[in-house]
Computed example of a mutant assay.
Amino acid sequence: MNQLKALVVDDEPLARERLSRLLKEAGCTIAGELCDGVALLDWLKEPGEVDVIFLDIQMPGLSGLEVLAEVSDCPPVVFVTAFSSYAVQAFELAAVDYLLKPVFEDRLAKCLQRLRERLIRPLSPAELKALLPPPVRFPIRAGDGEIYMELELVTHFELENDQVWACRGQNRYLTRWAALSEVEQAFPEDGMVRIQRHLLLRPGMVKGIRPASVGRIKVMVAPKVELTVSRAMTPRMKECIRVGKP
């Protein structure tokens, strides 16, 4: 078996450690671990000898996508992220593969097999569809029955009178949940933030921010739709959407 030499780039120490361990267990050598896109750019100025870079997308400073867009000569890249919405853009930048967190052994094995066989080429739409998991969906009430909505369409969830509403901008849809904690438990990997006791926000849906009262901000999630972030959660919310403190 061809032993691959890999570089792991991720700002989350636990994710870095887990992926490195899985790669070692799969017979790979870890050439190094980096914690952000700037460090990778510096590394690429005089790159070491590696067969593949496993690269997180959302990182402080430069994202993985921004790094790959800036360099013309780079070892094969496999993107690793918690968000499937980046897949098309990743493959447009000539990524070899695209792994969703948490990475599992069987999916990683398929990726490594492609690398070992040097099947480094853009994937067809059918191949890309086969690699990606189906959209995450959940039921919403429709008359006497239910229909299913994709989580990626939802901007936030609201709790009102012991009922949880899924919101897509100004539109609201009644779910079968009775508490926001149930939503958080249903989607532990989505990174939702409780910005008020009754509001659960998906940070990736934020389009803009502006100051509100002292120590608070408002976030825009759709035209004419703004949500007020509590004073206690404002620092975390700023960090999630990667803006500096005023």
Rank of each mutant, 00 (worst) to 15 (best):
L227D: 00
H156Y: 09
L100F: 15
V183K: 08
L123D: 04
Q113P: 06
L153G: 08
V154N: 02
N171I: 09
C111W: 06
T228H: 09
M205G: 05
K224T: 11
V214N: 14
P211N: 09
V88P: 08
P139T: 08
L201K: 09
R216V: 05
W165S: 10
P203S: 06
D190H: 13
V154W: 03
T155V: 15
V96W: 10
L151G: 08
V183R: 09
S181F: 01
I140P: 05
P134F: 08
I140M: 04
E189P: 06
A142V: 07
G191Q: 11
R210A: 05
A142N: 07
C167V: 14
E160A: 15
E150K: 12
M192E: 04
G169Y: 03
F138P: 02
V206T: 06
P102W: 08
L128R: 15
L131C: 15
G169K: 00
G204V: 15
I147T: 14
V225S: 04
T175L: 07
Y98P: 12
V229E: 00
P133R: 13
L153W: 06
F104D: 08
T175F: 10
P133T: 09
Y98C: 11
E105W: 10
I209S: 12
T175S: 11
Q170D: 09
F104S: 11
V221R: 00
R202A: 07
N161F: 03
A179D: 03
L131D: 07
K218I: 09
W165F: 13
L199R: 08
E160Q: 12
P203A: 06
R210I: 11
E184W: 01
L128F: 11
K218D: 13
V214T: 13
R168D: 13
H156K: 05
Q170P: 09
Y98E: 04
Y98H: 11
T175C: 11
L153N: 06
I147C: 06
R216D: 00
R168M: 13
V154L: 02
A166S: 15
P188W: 03
V206L: 02
